[in-house]
Amino acid sequence: MISGSFRLKTLSGERETLHTGSFQIVTNNPLVADSLSGRYRVCFLKNGSDREVMVKVRDLIHRRHRLLTAPLSGSVKPWETPYRSIMVSSDPCSAVDATSLDLIERAMEVINRSHNYLKTTKPSIDHDFQIVDLSLIESALPSAEAIGRI
């Protein structure tokens, strides 16, 4: 399913690896970018916030891409982890997917609200948050690869 890839450095600082697979991963997690961009299409928002990842995904949904993974991916709370990785379809569908839009909007409500909470993030545990975020998105890969293009 996956064949050939190349990387782009854009003016906005986004690093994109283009693949021919049926999905892409939008992330602000450098570990996801490093671990997965060799095999999959990864849109890496370097130094981006979790909210910026969601905004990027929401914009893709408006451009008729379909959301493939839950935007609130685990039970690590959004006010703790700075990292977020979300899978969306590579190719646009024929129309905007209402379910995808509903899910991302609801998730963004939670994120917006969460910024009122006390922060727990510390540099010493930054890498651990990256590892768990990577594991969460990796857990979707077997399903995504098994299904292929719909």
Partner: peptide, 8 residues
């Protein structure tokens, strides 16, 4: 409770 939406 999976991450992948089609699984859900």
């Amino acid at each position: 409770e999976n991450v992948y939406l089609d699984d859900k």
